[in-house]
């Protein structure tokens, strides 16, 4: 039995990536009024070798506390969620973007096992969790998120390049 737990990590300081993406969407891609705000969080999915949800949460919490590359309390705020749970503050549609070949998670997994002895960590995935908040005039937040999620051409889409990344829209 294993349990999957998501760790969602947000910057306390201004997120320049989200700000730049928002600026380009507004000014260069015509989303001026449709887009309210764009937020970005780091997303990690831990698969822990236990059927006990509380224990799995505790293990993820422990790794997050001991590994500042995951969560550095000086610059991050983190929360533990069930996969695809929509918690935290704010409205908006979630777009979860993951690299098909998740190099980042692989090196983090190796480090957690090597340095923290995380032998009960069966797998690790990483991603970027975007929250697309619609502007005042936007009636259909989901189609807004769909429009900017996948890069199809120079004019269409931004957050994921489907040739290297997958994306899921939820919430």
């Amino acid at each position: 039995m294993s349990t999957k737990i998501a760790l969602v990590v947000r910057l306390k300081v201004p997120d320049t990536t989200a700000l730049s993406a928002e600026d380009v969407l507004r000014r260069k891609m015509g989303y001026g009024d449709r887009l309210g705000r764009l937020r970005r969080e780091d997303w990690w999915l831990f698969e822990v070798d236990t059927g006990d949800g509380a224990r799995a949460r505790a293990r993820v919490g422990e790794w997050a506390r001991r590994c500042t590359s995951l969560v550095n309390p000086n610059k991050h705020r983190a929360r533990v969620e069930l996969p695809r749970e929509k918690s935290g503050s704010g409205s908006g549609v979630r777009v979860l973007v993951r690299d098909r070949d998740d190099v980042r998670a692989r090196s983090m997994l190796a480090f957690l096992r090597y340095s923290l002895g995380a032998s009960d960590l069966l797998s690790l995935r990483s991603g970027t969790l975007w929250t697309v908040e619609p502007g005042a005039g936007e009636k259909d937040p989901r189609s807004l998120a769909e429009g900017i999620a996948a890069t199809r051409s120079r004019r269409r889409g931004l957050l994921a390049n489907p040739h290297a990344q997958t994306f899921e829209i939820y919430g």
């Binding site: 306390k12 300081v13 320049t16 730049s20 309390p73 000086n74 610059k75």
Partner: peptide, 15 residues
């Protein structure tokens, strides 16, 4: 102290 000092975290921006 480290916790309290976080007000001093600066955000570098090479761009």
């Amino acid at each position: 102290e480290v916790e309290q000092d976080r007000g001093a975290v600066q955000v570098p921006d090479p761009f």
